[in-house]
Amino acid sequence: MTLHLVTGVYTPQQDTYDIILELPYKKTGTNVVEAFKYFRVANGNSFQGDFALSELETKVTVNTNTCFSATFSGRATIGNSEVIITEGIIMHVYTDPFD
């Protein structure tokens, strides 16, 4: 399963965060996320990269066809910057349940 979360729009004038999580559908628990990809646009500059799973703590509490919930924290070097996320929370209800 891939969960793609975006806030903002992809233009140099607009701050944008884009996170892609890959994990087994329906699986919950600690560190079940298989990939955590990060993309950021700020002040006309863009940065992208993957968080190393060894540097990422995740806890998926809900993973159904109607909603998803997880917490996460970690660090990555992306471009020439260190990105640190602490106490990240995702709670998402799908508009349409899927099979």
Rank of each mutant, 00 (worst) to 15 (best):
N45T: 07
Y38M: 12
D15E: 11
T58K: 13
D15G: 11
F68Q: 11
R40E: 05
S54F: 10
E34F: 11
V9I: 04
F72E: 04
N43E: 15
F72G: 10
T58D: 08
T66W: 01
V33F: 12
F39D: 03
F72Q: 08
P24Y: 00
E57A: 01
I78Y: 03
V32F: 12
I78D: 02
Q14L: 09
F39W: 06
V9M: 10
T58A: 04
Y10A: 03
R40H: 02
E34Q: 13
L53H: 01
S54H: 11
V60Y: 04
Q48H: 09
T64G: 04
S73P: 00
S81H: 07
V62A: 15
E34S: 14
G44S: 00
V41S: 11
G79V: 05
V62N: 14
N80Q: 08
V32I: 12
N31V: 05
K59T: 15
V41K: 13
K26N: 09
N45W: 11
E34T: 12
F36E: 03
S69C: 08
S69K: 13
E34A: 12
L21F: 02
A42M: 14
C67A: 15
P12D: 12
V60N: 03
P24D: 04
A76H: 11
F36D: 07
F39C: 00
V62D: 14
I19T: 06
P24L: 00
G79C: 02
E22M: 10
T66P: 04
V41W: 12
Y10F: 03
E57N: 01
A70C: 01
V62T: 15
F51A: 06
V83S: 10
S73G: 12
I19N: 07
T16R: 13
T61W: 11
N43F: 14
T16F: 14
S46A: 10
G74A: 03
D15V: 12
V33H: 10
P24K: 05
A52I: 14
T16V: 15
Y25K: 09
L23D: 05
I19Y: 00
I78A: 02
T64H: 10
K37G: 06
F68R: 03
Q13L: 00
A70I: 00
A42P: 11
V41E: 07
T66Q: 14
A70Q: 08
F47P: 00
I19R: 01
L23W: 06
S73L: 08
T58Y: 08
E82M: 09
Y25F: 03
V33L: 13
E57W: 03
V60E: 02
R40K: 11
R75H: 07
T66K: 07
C67V: 14
K37R: 15
F36Q: 09
T61H: 07
L21I: 00
T66F: 05
N80D: 14
T28V: 10
S73E: 14
T30R: 12
G44V: 04
E34C: 06
F39Y: 02
Y17E: 03
N63Y: 02
I19E: 00
T66V: 13
I19A: 02
V33I: 15
G29D: 01
E82A: 03
F39N: 09
